[in-house]
Design a protein around this nucleic acid. Structure first.
Length: 528
RNA sequence: GAGCCCGUAGCUCAGUCGGUAGAGCACGUGACUUUUAAUCAUGGGGUCCCGGGUUCGAAUCCCGGCGGGCUCACCA
């Protein structure tokens, strides 16, 4: 056993604790019969991938990476399993061509035409979105389609087992259901051969030897159908259990809203002769008001929102921190998460090997975090972006170089990515809040004077020279306090009550550009 | 009703193996012979929700409360 895996066994970082429990308690240190350890993440494909999807995959990957260190010879796979055979219950309101979808309600997602017109079916479309979503983060996973598993017959053995243990399964499920649902409940949902709809109908006969069930249609007709080969889909909780059994899932996370399902599915799984996977129940995400984040409400923060302003590693850090604690997910947590990430990757190299395994940086970067001398925190960058009034990265970089000589987009790629985020922040939050006011007559005169001053400067005038010119103008004109002069510049020219050092700003913004700006302000043109 | 999470500075939170209560922001003061803060230094501020238990020692472990929040009971 290597030193590293020895150290990892004693690490207190949660992915290592999970991996250790998985290895010792479930696997007993040996490779499962199927030849690998299977991690699964589930995906209900009627919606779009969201921040919970990301969290589940990133956290599961962390455990998987941890296992790799503790047991280097233990092969593992990660399945991203899409429930694309589920019947569509209602038309989503965030898709085009809703009328086209409506006649297909109740059918498996993979049997419904793609409202976007780009894929074989709605299910395929959503699967593709899931995959491209996961791929943008570089996750290592294997996509699996429920439809594919059902129709190919790879679920048949497990399905027949459900049929063989039908009564036991029913007896576990029924007590958890309401009166009404009990009457029609069946773990098997036959797919109607005529309409293609996934039926919720009572099963009145079972033929274990033939592998079939007989169900009663609404019109009273009795139909016999095999439970195998995709002729039947399983109802949710039984489905989960059947899948665990068929795939031999060893580890799967789920939100705390699924705790009752988890318990029930585990019982069913044991009935089928399977072993329920090890589970980590994570807490849900809340918005800034403490309300549950839901796609339909549109509260909280979407993955895309986060990535607009900050690198994905900062989001991965957020996911790493305390998976079992409910966390508020809204804009204000981003800067801190970014700065914490920078701190962790900054400290990593200097840490003892044992200590490194405890660092979130290890888990975010699979043991190999990048190193970059950090020059500026993200908080400072956001402040800088709002103060220097520019959507131009080059201008921002100009200010950064003054503060951190030697830094450049080439030598500090991480910082450069942060600058992208800062610019987006400026554009989305700062700029819309700007209010420009008109110059007073005195101020207009001063602006004209300043424009003249700048005109007479040499083309390569330094920021200090320009700054001197600004002061000169302020002193010569009728500003009893220089403070008022600078405030006028900020309020009229930049639409904010604070701003950068004017000399530096003009140098970076461009003297000619500034003169044009001053002229317009002096003429009373709106600058917004 | 059941289950889960949380309660630490004004705010947001960290606190790993039980060992002198921490960070960021905010606030106060001072410095930079030019508005500034994107600088530096420095200061104040806590009944670690309450009560018990274990211990030489508890924010931390155990038990019991209180408060806040969420989830589930119909569907996945």
């Amino acid at each position: 056993m290597s030193d590293l895996s020895q150290l990892a066994r004693t690490s207190t970082a949660w992915p290592f604790q999970e991996a250790r429990a998985l290895l010792d308690e479930r696997l007993k240190g040996t490779v499962p019969d199927k030849g690998y350890v299977l991690f699964e993440t589930g995906y209900g494909p009627s919606g779009l991938p969201h921040i919970g999807t990301f969290g589940e995959v990133v956290r599961t990957t962390m455990v998987r990476n941890a296992l790799k260190v503790i047991a280097p010879d233990m092969p593992s796979r990660l399945f991203a399993f899409s429930d694309d055979m589920d019947g569509l219950r209602k038309v989503p309101d965030n898709i085009p061509n809703q009328d086209m979808i409506r006649p297909h309600l109740g059918k498996p997602l993979t049997s419904i035409p793609d409202p976007f017109g780009t894929h074989e079916s709605f299910g395929h479309h959503n699967n593709a979105r899931l995959r491209s979503f996961l791929d943008t983060f570089g996750f290592e996973y294997e996509f699996q389609s429920a439809t594919d598993w059902y129709r190919s017959g790879r679920f048949d053995d497990a399905l027949l087992r459900v049929l063989a243990h039908y009564d036991e399964v029913i007896n576990v499920v029924l007590p958890t259901l309401g009166e009404e649902r009990r009457r029609t409940y069946s773990p098997f949902l036959p797919v109607c051969p005529e309409t293609g709809i996934v039926l919720q109908v009572p099963v009145i006969e079972r033929n274990v030897a033939a592998g079939t069930i007989v169900y009663q249609r609404e019109d009273g007709r009795k139909v016999e159908t095999p439970v195998t080969g995709g002729a039947c889909k399983m109802q949710w909780k039984a489905d989960w259990a059947m899948r665990w059994t068929a795939l031999g899932v060893d580890y799967e996370m789920s939100g705390k809203d699924l705790i009752p399902s988890l318990e029930l599915s585990s019982k069913i799984c044991r009935i089928l002769g399977g072993r329920p996977p090890m589970n980590l129940t994570y807490e849900l995400f809340l918005d800034d008001q403490g309300q549950k984040i839901s796609k339909s409400k549109g509260n909280g923060l979407a993955v895309e929102d986060w990535l607009k302003y900050a690198p994905q590693e900062s989001l991965a850090l957020f996911m790493y921190q305390k998976p079992k604690a409910a966390k508020r997910l809204y804009f204000d947590v981003i800067p801190r998460s970014v700065d914490d990430w920078l701190t962790y990757i900054g400290k990593f190299a200097a840490d003892e090997p044992g200590k490194r395994l405890d660092s979130p940086a290890w888990h975010i970067h699979d043991g190999r975090p990048p190193h970059e001398d950090s020059h500026l925190t993200f908080s400072i960058l956001l402040n800088l972006a709002s103060v220097c009034n520019s959507e131009d990265k080059a201008v921002l970089w100009g200010f950064i170089r003054r503060y951190a000589p030697g830094a450049s987009p080439e030598t500090a790629p991480i910082l450069d990515r942060l600058v992208d985020g800062a610019v987006a922040y400026y554009r989305d939050f700062v700029k819309p809040a700007k209010t420009y006011r008109m110059a007073t007559a005195d101020e207009a005169q001063a602006f004209r004077d300043l424009a003249g001053h700048l005109q007479s400067l040499a083309a390569d005038a330094s920021a200090e020279d320009i700054q001197a010119a600004v002061y000169e103008t302020g002193k010569r004109d009728c500003f009893p306090e220089l403070k008022a002069w600078f405030r006028a510049c900020y309020e009229v020219l930049l639409g904010q009550d604070q701003g950068p050092r004017m000399g530096s700003f003009i140098k970076l913004y461009g003297v000619d550009n500034t003169i044009a700006l001053l002229d317009r302000a002096a003429r009373g043109e709106p600058l917004a």
